[in-house]
């Protein structure tokens, strides 16, 4: 029983991180219909920025999140306006896949050149403290990671549903043409969406950094996870990302615990394929363009 509960808990912590890492991917997919294969790289860049902040400046990785988000927001905005826009103009899924794949390849190698190919991990000062709750162990790092993930997803939901930016982003997602007629600068909104999504990817990276080790070749892994989360939960909404992410986290830990440590990925894709067959819009499929 304790084992099941502990696995459940670990799954939720992992799932929270997955959710946060996928939220931005889901937003871009929902609003622009772009499958952003650079997403995993943005996650890693966030992790490396947080690592640098701790390593060189001694800033706690969770406190570095606002800075990381600001940097990645700017980068994401610029990236969209210069490179991604051409793929959006062509409104071809494949163009967007290839462009982002190419950029991911470039950035991954730049990361290797800058930081080396080895695994890095961030060790905050509270890394080795843990709480006992009956027979369950909770280390502070994981709890704070989960809290940060949930808080940031709530923040994203707030931005999307309660602010002017969010309103124009949602309007553009529903119909870019009509939004344009109403005086929305669609290109600017696309840039904004990409910026917001990249910022949250970066934040996810910082959180991931304290829970798991990371290395440049991981980026594909994170992009795939984000995709799986989106397929499970549904495109475009933070709630979908949250649900999908938590599910994925649980699938991961339960498979590793009860079937075998080598099988989580196989299980993830099995569930993914089944999900695509049964309910291709995801559990919380929304009215966003990408889910249709």
């Amino acid at each position: 029983m304790t084992l099941v509960l502990q696995t459940l808990l670990d799954g939720l912590v992992l799932g929270g991180v997955f959710s946060l890492a996928a939220a931005g991917f889901s937003l871009i997919f929902g609003v622009m219909n772009v499958v952003n294969l650079t997403h995993g790289i943005f996650v890693l860049i966030g992790a490396y920025l947080a690592w640098s902040a701790q390593h060189f400046l001694g800033v706690d990785p969770l406190l570095a999140i606002p800075g990381v988000m600001a940097v990645l927001f700017a980068a994401g905005y610029a990236y969209q306006r210069t490179i991604i826009q051409s793929a959006v103009d062509r409104s071809s899924l494949l163009a967007s896949l290839l462009v982002t794949f190419g950029v991911a390849l470039v950035l991954r190698n730049l990361l290797v050149l800058a930081f080396g190919p080895d695994f890095k991990s961030i060790t905050p000062s509270y890394a080795f403290t843990n709480l006992k709750l009956g027979a369950l162990t909770l280390d502070i790092v994981r709890i704070s990671a989960l809290a940060a993930s949930l808080g940031l997803i709530a923040l994203l939901a707030f931005v999307l549903y309660r602010t002017d930016w969010g309103r124009v982003i949602r309007a553009t997602a529903q119909q870019d043409f009509a939004a344009g007629l109403c005086g929305v600068n669609v290109r600017h909104v696309y840039g904004l969406t990409f910026g917001v999504a990249s910022a949250f990817a970066g934040a996810a990276g910082a959180v991931i950094g304290i829970v798991l080790p990371f290395a440049p070749p991981d980026e594909g892994h994170w992009t795939m996870k984000a995709f799986a989360v989106v397929v499970l939960g549904g495109v475009g909404s933070p709630a979908g990302a949250l649900l999908g992410g938590l599910l994925l986290g649980l699938i991961n830990t339960f498979t590793a615990q009860f079937i075998g440590p080598a099988f989580p990925n196989a299980m993830m894709f099995l569930v993914l394929v089944l999900m695509l067959l049964v309910r291709p819009h995801g559990l919380l499929g929304s009215a966003f363009g990408g889910s249709r």
Partner: peptide, 20 residues
């Protein structure tokens, strides 16, 4: 060998932007 994937990436991006 160090930069060959990097250059491949640049090539792919250039390809899609210039010769879709």
């Amino acid at each position: 060998l160090d930069v060959h994937l990097l250059v491949t990436g640049v090539l792919v991006v250039g390809l899609v932007l210039l010769a879709p």
